[in-house]
């Protein structure tokens, strides 16, 4: 036999069979990973549905995960044997173990979303997909460290509660914007990130988390939401994805205050609060620089192109861009 042929065959065999790095090992590792992701996605879906108070069927699971009925049944069978879920008639119910694992995935997803939005400053419409990719490959230890570093956030950037380390979710009072009484001020506390189309449509209008709004008009085919400056018109089915909560009295007063950007040169003011939408990195930076409630501040130096503008605060001079100055509420003092 030809020696080079033997050599080639040996090399090929090694390439296929070597543990860990061989083709076979790589392939099975990939399959295992895909299987794990599928299982985790299924758990997440089941938990979300359980919160809404219904136990889904295999069909709805198959639809959600884009699987064929056979594949979905296989998945369910496998998860049953792992003790993650149980079939009750046609309904899928999570076992305590399954719920624990599912909450962990949700925790990973929402912590990642929080991190991507507030620390990495990724645009909001992209964080869901990115978090979905990352949630499967994060260890509990990494999650805990991330959570601690961000100061144990309670909600993700969509306003969804983040399960804590023991998997507990703290729910707060809320209702869809479509049910909120007209002419009463509400705070947007949640914009559901699924379905994506609805989410993108809401974000595109300019409605943001933490915004104070009123329902101006509600008809059969549109809901008009106002924030005091702009009006946003949404279809009721879209508006139902916005969850609102009552506004505390302090916050309602703060909303009427002017912002730093509205001050005239050398007009002295006192900082009232930082906008709620400013979170993470930016907020810490503001606080580090001494932009804390109660501090006296006035615009000192104008730029000939309009922005940034430099403000004198606590004796130092700090330049801010206009959109940042708009995030700081102030009350006017008498001019020096």
């Amino acid at each position: 036999m030809n020696i080079s042929l033997v050599l080639l065959a040996t090399v090929l065999l090694i390439a296929i069979l070597v543990p860990r790095y061989g083709l076979l090992a790589t392939f099975s590792a990939m399959r295992q990973r895909l299987q794990k992701e599928l299982t985790e996605d299924a758990l997440k879906f089941l938990i979300e549905r359980q919160y809404l108070g219904n136990n889904p069927s295999i069909e709805s699971l198959a639809g959600k995960l884009h699987l064929s009925h056979t594949k979905a049944s296989q998945l369910v069978g496998q998860m049953e044997s792992q003790g993650l879920l149980a079939m009750k008639g046609l309904q899928l119910t999570l076992t305590p173990a399954g719920e624990q694992l599912g909450l962990r995935v949700i925790r990973a997803h929402r912590l990642w979303e929080k991190y991507l939005a507030d620390e990495a400053k990724m645009p909001l419409h992209r964080i869901h997909r990115e978090a979905h990719r990352l949630e499967h490959n994060t260890t509990s230890d990494q999650l805990n460290r991330m959570e601690a570093e961000m100061g144990f956030p309670v909600r993700d950037p969509h306003g969804d509660p983040i399960p804590n380390i023991s998997g507990k979710i703290v729910e707060t009072e809320k209702m869809p914007a479509t049910e909120w009484p007209q002419a009463k001020t509400a705070r947007i506390i949640e914009i559901e990130d699924e379905p994506q189309i609805a989410y993108q449509q809401i974000v595109a209008t300019g409605l943001r988390l933490g915004m104070h709004v009123r329902i101006l008009d509600r008809t059969k085919d549109s809901v008009v939401i106002g924030d005091g400056i702009n009006e946003y018109r949404l279809a009721p089915i879209i508006a139902a994805n916005i969850q609102v909560a009552p506004v505390s009295e302090d916050a309602e007063i703060a909303a009427t205050h002017p912002t730093l950007a509205q001050l005239k040169p050398r007009q002295v003011a006192k900082i009232v609060s930082l906008d709620e939408t400013v979170q993470g990195f930016t907020r810490r930076r503001f606080l580090d620089l001494g932009l804390t409630p109660g501090a006296e501040i006035y615009p000192e130096l104008e730029n000939f192109f309009g922005e940034p503008r430099a403000y004198r605060i606590r004796g130092t001079l700090i330049a801010l861009r206009k959109n940042q100055a708009e995030q700081i509420k102030v009350t006017l003092q008498e001019t020096i």
Partner: peptide, 14 residues
């Protein structure tokens, strides 16, 4: 490197 403009804060020291 798409993303929002993040915090622009600039100290103008004496």
């Amino acid at each position: 490197l798409k993303g929002q403009a993040s915090a622009f804060t600039l100290e103008l020291p004496p």
